[in-house]
Design a protein around this nucleic acid. Sequence first.
DNA 1: GAATTATATAAGATTATGGTTATATGTTCA
DNA 2: TGAACATATAACCATAATCTTATATAATTC
Lengths: 113, 113
Amino acid sequence: METTVDINDVAELFKVLGDHSRLSMVAMMYKKECCVCDFTECFNMSQPAVSQHLKRLRTLGLITERKDGYWTHLSLNSDSPFMEMLSKLLATTPGLDAHVDRLLASCTREACC
Amino acid sequence: METTVDINDVAELFKVLGDHSRLSMVAMMYKKECCVCDFTECFNMSQPAVSQHLKRLRTLGLITERKDGYWTHLSLNSDSPFMEMLSKLLATTPGLDAHVDRLLASCTREACC
DNA sequence: GAATTATATAAGATTATGGTTATATGTTCA
DNA sequence: TGAACATATAACCATAATCTTATATAATTC
């Protein structure tokens, strides 16, 4: 039996993805594991702002975390009931792939990765 | 040449769909042409509230309108650059189909249809 | 154990969202 | 023309979203 996802959950997912930064974060993590500092660098955004966006993704159960020394590495949670939908959705989003590649290329930090 | 859709537009689309009522409206219109009063009835929502939601869909170019006497009939705009994405996205949304059928069945008004 | 680093949380300001009520607009019909 | 109906807009209010700065927490290194 599949985990149920109802219409309100889906609206919630869209709401969370309805922000440029979070959409980009999710798309980046879909390609590879990321570090919090990747995001602060790529989006030129303050650390607390990133942290708060991540909290929303966490609350929706979209991400998993792996602590390693200083750093927290973030991935999409493959157990999320949204995962199937999310992957189709990201694949369907035009221009997303190129955008993400550009973002990932702009992460210059080496220490955390 | 295809109309360009950039990442900000996509985030904007998600934001607009990130509301239970608007998501339902779009899904309903995906199945059939609807009337404003269908929405006020189905969602048990005031007419101005529906009107304001429709305005957001209109602003994003998602809908077209057909005036007929008292009523305004609304459809998804097949010329929208979001249309391809939208249709895949609606098809991928679990439980949406049944939800929409239930909503449409709850529209009892005859006059406008 | 003190300094450094990464991250989270709290508190506050500003803007966006989504509803309400009241009113305006435009069509239809008597 | 005026009453009835569908819809849009305006003004207002409460709550949510998103950023900022300041501070807390936890791991690392000297």
